[in-house]
Each structure stands twice: as structure tokens, then as C-alpha cells.
Design a protein around this nucleic acid. Structure first.
Length: 266
DNA sequence: AAACTTGTCAACCGCACAGTG
DNA sequence: GCACTGTGCGGTTGACAAGTT
């Protein structure tokens, strides 16, 4: 740009660290003449370097006004804030930090601040998770009592005649099913919370189908169905307990879970 | 004390873009 | 419009230092 194309030279350029002598030559030349066209700088300054290398050396280490030394706390905070705003736009960030170069900021980010930013993000995520867990705790404890009451009603209904049983309303969602419906859907616990709307819809259908079949069945079929459901609930509960224990989630759920993994493993 | 690992930082590389002929 | 060249930028590398085993 605005430079006369130079003759292509086959001279071999030095690479690697700059010697104090090279630094001095470059500094002297640029201070005296300005850099102008960078590709001509090494030739005029008597350096065995390419223009790009000279430019980088000047910008990052030789130009006046550079601030050397460790970053201050204020600078750190500025970088963190700027990174949130700009992302990896190091040169833009450098404009907001006088005396610092984009390379310096980039290096500092990768060596120090990146970890801190990750940690901060993790903490924020943990706080968010804890808040969710608290919400879950309160909803699960109320669900437990609701379900227990419903199930007692259900048990009581079995003492009645088939006729009266047909008028009973069964619990819409059995607790053990709610806790362990991967048995039905083959999904893991994490997906439950992501797809909670679908799950609620599916459970509604599942529960409704079961209730319909149950009510229409004969008394012999009712017994069989009931036994199946009891086994189902028992297995689901154990499975859930096992999942809770294995994942460590149990710590977050106060309650009366039977944690007998020997039974599970048997 | 030596070997190995980890962190830091200067410098290089490749790409995109803009100016020029 | 196209090829060439210079510049700027972000990603990556590699040498060296410091720390750990």
C-alpha cells in the first residue's frame, strides 16, 4: 500500500529472538526515518530480517510509550470486561489499554485470565444449578406427600368392591414412574429436565392409558395389573436410588430413600 | 541433583483485506 | 477485473524459566 514494490531478494532472513544489536539498529532507523514501508525497513536499517518481523518487534517492544511489567488489578478487570464485550479481538482491546500491545494482552489472557474467567463462569453455573436444585427439592418433597396420599387412597380403594373401584380416580403420575421413567423412555436423568414438557405429556398419556385399562379390567386382571405395578414401582424406586447414589445427587435430596445397593446389585 | 512438567512470552505463520498498477 | 504486494490480526509454536517429583 503506497510502497514501491521492492526487488525480490533471495537473502536469508534471521529468525528467532532479536539481539540487542538488532534492536538498536531498528530503533535507530525508525526513530530517525519513521517506518514508512516496512518491507524496506530491514534493507535500509541493515537487518537480516523481513519487514513483518521488524514491524512486530517495533510494535510490541521498541516503540515508545510501552508499559512493561505485570498487569495491574485494574488492567486485569478491564481485560476481563473487554473480552466479554469483544471476544478475541486483541487489537481492539489494546486500544483501551494504553501502553499494552495486542500480543501482550493475548498472552496474558491465555496464561492467566482464561482460567480465571472459566472459573468465574463455572461458579456462576454452580450458583444457577444450586438455585435449580433448591426449586427441585421443594417441588419433590411436595410431590412425595401428594403421591403418598394418592397412593394410600389407591390402596384403600382395593379393599372396596370392583364396582366402587371403577369410580375411583387413580394417581395421575405414580411417583416412582416420575422418578425413573427412563425405564419407559430409555433416557438419562439429564434429559428429563431438558425435555420436561414432552415428558409430562408422555406421562399424561401413559398414566391415562393405564388408568383406562385398569378400570375396564375384570377383578382377576386388576389383581395381576396391580402386582405388575407394585413390582414396577419397587424396581423403579430401587433403580432411582441407585442412580441417585451413583451420581451423588442423593446429597441434594433430603428424604427417606432406602439406600440398599446390595439389594440392587443382587 | 536430575528428570519431568507446567507456565510464560516472544516470535512466527497463515489468512483476510486493502491499495496499486 | 485481476494479480501482486503490504499490512494487520488472531492462532499457534517453541524456547526458556520455574516449579515439582
Amino acid at each position: 500500500m503506497g510502497c514501491k514494490p521492492l526487488e525480490k531478494t533471495k537473502k536469508k532472513h534471521n529468525k528467532g529472538l532479536w539481539s540487542p544489536d538488532e534492536d538498536q539498529k531498528l530503533k535507530d532507523y525508525v526513530t530517525k526515518h519513521g517506518h514508512g514501508c516496512w518491507s524496506s525497513v530491514p534493507i535500509n536499517a541493515g537487518l537480516q530480517r523481513n519487514g513483518k518481523s521488524c514491524r512486530l518487534r517495533w510494535i510490541n517492544y521498541l516503540r515508545p510509550g510501552l508499559k512493561r511489567g505485570p498487569f495491574s488489578l485494574a488492567e486485569e478487570e478491564t481485560i476481563l470486561a473487554l473480552h466479554q464485550k469483544f471476544g478475541n479481538k486483541w487489537s481492539q482491546m489494546a486500544h483501551h489499554l494504553p501502553g499494552r500491545t495486542d500480543n501482550e494482552i493475548k498472552n496474558y489472557w491465555h496464561s492467566c485470565l482464561k482460567k480465571r474467567a472459566t472459573k468465574m463462569a463455572q461458579n456462576a453455573q454452580e450458583q444457577h444449578n444450586n438455585a435449580q436444585i433448591q426449586t427441585l427439592e421443594s417441588s419433590s418433597s411436595s410431590l412425595t406427600s401428594i403421591t403418598r396420599n394418592s397412593f394410600e387412597t389407591f390402596e384403600g380403594s382395593l379393599m372396596d368392591t370392583d364396582q366402587s373401584m371403577q369410580k375411583r380416580s387413580f394417581p395421575k403420575v405414580i411417583f416412582a414412574e416420575w422418578l425413573s421413567f427412563d425405564q419407559y423412555y430409555g433416557q438419562n436423568l439429564g434429559n428429563y429436565f431438558e425435555n420436561v414438557t414432552d415428558i409430562n405429556n408422555n406421562l399424561d398419556n401413559l398414566s391415562q392409558n393405564f388408568q383406562d385399562n385398569f378400570v375396564q379390567g375384570t377383578s382377576g386382571e386388576v389383581k395381576t395389573k396391580f402386582n405388575e405395578v407394585c413390582d414396577d414401582i419397587l424396581q423403579s424406586t430401587y433403580k432411582f436410588e441407585y442412580q441417585m447414589l451413583e451420581s451423588g445427587l442423593v446429597d441434594y435430596f433430603p428424604g427417606e430413600f432406602c439406600m440398599n445397593c446390595d439389594d440392587m446389585n443382587a
